[in-house]
């Protein structure tokens, strides 16, 4: 009996902890989304409403069409808080998306054959080149940011997609190669051996036999590369100059740095900018979790 009471008390305690954790984890997201459908006046009240009193899509309407929300016309002085920059979030998310998709493609296209070679083939300089690729990630971004800037400027590639795609590929490729090498090493060799007996070249055994078997690993590696470059901020800030290439994080940081900006408009930008990674994280959850788990438990 005593044991039973203790066990149910335990369950209650765990549930309370779980609820607190859920609030801590998704609270910021929920508040951001709630703030984006409120007028500025309502948002600056003390204390603010947790649940919006007069929910409105005016802020979104402004970002997409440029129509000034009615909430801003109530008090004249707030009108200056309308920031034109908020309207850049659409193109910025598009830029982030194009860059992230390209980086993902490059990672899979160049990373997969490299990982296959490291996992399965024997050749000279295999270990040094593998170690070199992994060690390249130890360099702090701040130390190479300036050299990157100089290189990109020398090639007249500032403010181009190409420069950001290159830089983000360099950042993500080592992880992709390491991750896929581990992944391939953990796939049994029998199928490939059978293929080799039948006269497959290494390339054929990679594309015809291995790739279909490692689809989950490829999906996870692709998602990691996508997220890393979608979220990258430091290099994007140095290497972009106009909205032609500025990414979501760059625009959001720049809007937020403006002391006069409207908070409900920032919330709109943040909410819109978060949609792609959140959708990706939820829909790819199973692969991501498996991939992350694999990266610490495979040896």
């Amino acid at each position: 009996m005593n044991n039973k009471v203790r066990r149910s008390l335990n369950t209650v305690l765990l549930n309370i902890l779980a609820i607190l954790l859920i609030v801590y984890i998704i609270g910021p997201f929920v508040w951001m989304a709630a703030a984006s459908i409120q007028g500025e006046n309502e948002l600056l009240k003390k204390p603010p409403n947790l649940i919006p009193e007069n929910p409105t899509l005016d802020n979104y309407n402004y970002v997409f069409t440029g129509k000034i929300p009615t909430a801003y016309e109530v008090k004249g002085q707030i009108r200056s808080r309308i920031s034109q920059e908020a309207r850049l979030i659409g193109p910025a998310v598009k830029n982030s998306f194009i860059i992230a998709i390209s980086v993902m493609a490059i990672n899979l296209f160049f990373g997969t054959p490299a990982a296959y070679a490291f996992a399965r083939l024997r050749f000279r300089f295999k270990n040094p080149s593998y170690s070199f690729i992994l060690a390249s990630r130890l360099m702090p971004a701040m130390a190479i940011a300036i050299p990157y800037y100089v290189i990109i400027r020398t090639f007249h590639l500032l403010d181009t997609y190409l420069s950001l795609i290159m830089v983000n590929s360099v950042i993500t490729l080592p992880f992709t190669i390491w991750f896929l090498t581990l992944y391939i090493s953990n796939i049994p060799r029998e199928m490939e051996d059978a293929g080799l007996v039948d006269g497959c070249t290494p390339f054929q055994s990679l594309t015809k036999i291995l790739v279909p078997m490692m689809a989950p690993g490829l999906v996870a590696a692709g998602a990691f590369a996508f997220m890393t470059s979608y979220n990258e901020f430091l290099f994007a800030r140095f290497l972009t100059q106009t909205i032609k290439t500025q990414t979501g994080p760059v625009i959001i940081a720049s809007i937020a740095g403006n002391p006069d900006v409207s908070y409900s408009l920032i919330s709109v930008c943040v909410t819109l900018g978060l949609i792609p990674p959140l959708i990706l994280a939820i829909s790819m959850r199973k692969w991501l979790t498996e991939g992350l788990s694999a990266s610490v438990t495979y040896h």
Binding site: F110, R122, I133, P147, T201
Partner: peptide
């Protein structure tokens, strides 16, 4: 082809990474 294959498959990635690691590091 078999002998060259491993090098060909790691070379693109290796070149991209080296270009943006070794040179920037020396430069820094």
């Amino acid at each position: 082809w078999d002998r060259l294959y491993p090098y060909l498959s790691i070379l693109p990635a290796l070149i991209i990474i080296a270009l943006f690691t070794v040179y920037p590091f020396v430069y820094a």
